[in-house]
Write a protein that binds this DNA or RNA. Structure first.
Lengths: 230, 230
DNA sequence: GACTCAATTATGTCTATACATAAAGTTATT
DNA sequence: AATAACTTTATGTATAGACATAATTGAGTC
């Protein structure tokens, strides 16, 4: 026999695609499959677990394993580090700090992050350039107690985007994409007409202890696309 | 002792967050960690493998395991089934077929999917409604040999979106998001002014054998957002 | 029928052991 | 020096066996 878990993974996926194992029906249990494939139960387990993580199967103790009704495929997006995104296109990366201040955060934003009134917050606006052309405009609020050292960081050398990834790894957060018309400021900085449809990304990240780290709004230059792999 | 792989997973993540294990440095090997935690190497392996899959660690045979320099966090998007997205908001789902024809596919699109000239293709335009209000406008091209039975499917009952998920599960594809101004047709159907910034999703899916299944362009009503979890 | 409690069962996980494999390091050969 | 061949090493994977755990099933009771 000599089966590897990847062989079993492949064969199981084939049966799902060919509807030999139909959606919403139970498949044989691990012990039976192990016997059929001539391998140990652990090997079958490894293969089926991978399929469950990918959304093809649903598994529950005692209840058994069934093919997902509508396979909840998950698209994956590698979180964009702007420098890498630009350099991957073979373009030259650069950034320009437009403003940096310890200003007061508007209440609605503060509430969204669950920050108290007196939480020390710094705001940084940055323009990112690809081959000298505007690529994205970033408006970032950083909660200073979650990112010690940020206040004195030399952001002209290391962009805020990179500084934070390297110094304040976060554990979870959300990413929202929407479309928005360019305001006067965005139009001026990105070099487009006011009202142009721009892809807008809003991202909030939290550190280990559920305390907010940053809130970022990024407007991309016109015609930008985000690609997710399925 | 009595460690489970989840305990080790948690402890390793703590060391990464606390920089006890610094970015871009090697961590002890599995055998040593197994001894430290008082468990078997397989258990350590399970924990470290999970961390590697999540992007925190990079592992290579013989070279060992190192903490990722810039943890490539991956955001996950549960692929949107429009009905579920609308009903999850507590709104009533409905759809209206606007047009359906076996028209010829423009060459640029056909080339993008790698389809031959005479490949049988059907085009369906659908408007999706939430509580009677326009929610999204879908323009879909379906490669008929990849979706047998689609031609005769009663799309008034089951929306194209759902029909295809249930009858032609795909194995991989891409998802592109961008911002686009509403054209006259989109404006009319979605009930907004021409030129309004709309979030636009373009999705191509492929079946098991690399042959294209569908190409979908969806314009969402104004102010729509897509949320990804990190 | 409605409820409680125990028996059953499929998945989840841990262990010890073994061998496979990739890649780095070392030595021998040209 | 460059190259080839061997050794070493850390991860990758397979196995049999055991026990843990969640959830269904069914028996017994009210």
């Amino acid at each position: 026999m000599a089966q590897s878990w990847q062989d079993i993974h492949k064969e199981a996926l084939r049966r799902i695609h060919s509807r030999e194992w139909a959606p919403d029906t139970l498949i044989p249990n691990e012990a039976d499959l192990a016997e059929e494939f001539g391998c140990s139960r652990a090997t079958v387990n490894r293969a089926l677990r991978a399929l469950a993580e990918a959304g093809w199967l649903e598994r529950r103790r005692k209840a058994g394993t069934r093919v997902a009704r509508a396979p909840q495929r998950r698209a994956q997006l590698a979180i964009p580090l702007l420098r890498e995104e630009i350099e991957a296109r073979g373009q030259r990366f650069a950034h320009r700090i437009l403003s940096r201040s310890r200003s007061k955060m508007p209440s609605p934003l503060r509430a969204a992050l669950g920050l108290s009134d007196d939480a020390p917050v710094e705001r940084v606006q940055t323009l990112y350039l690809a081959d000298g052309h505007p690529f994205a405009l970033e408006d970032r609020w950083v909660h200073l107690s979650a990112a010690p050292g940020f206040e004195t960081a030399e952001l002209e050398k290391t962009s805020p985007n990179e500084w934070l990834v390297q110094h304040a790894p976060f554990s979870h957060g959300t990413l929202d994409y929407s479309a928005a018309p360019a305001g006067d400021f965005e139009a001026e900085q990105l070099g487009c007409a006011p009202g142009t449809a721009l892809l807008c990304m809003q991202r909030s990240t939290f550190g280990p202890g559920d305390h907010a780290a940053t809130l970022v709004t990024t407007h991309f230059a016109p015609n930008h696309r985000v690609r997710l792999e399925i």
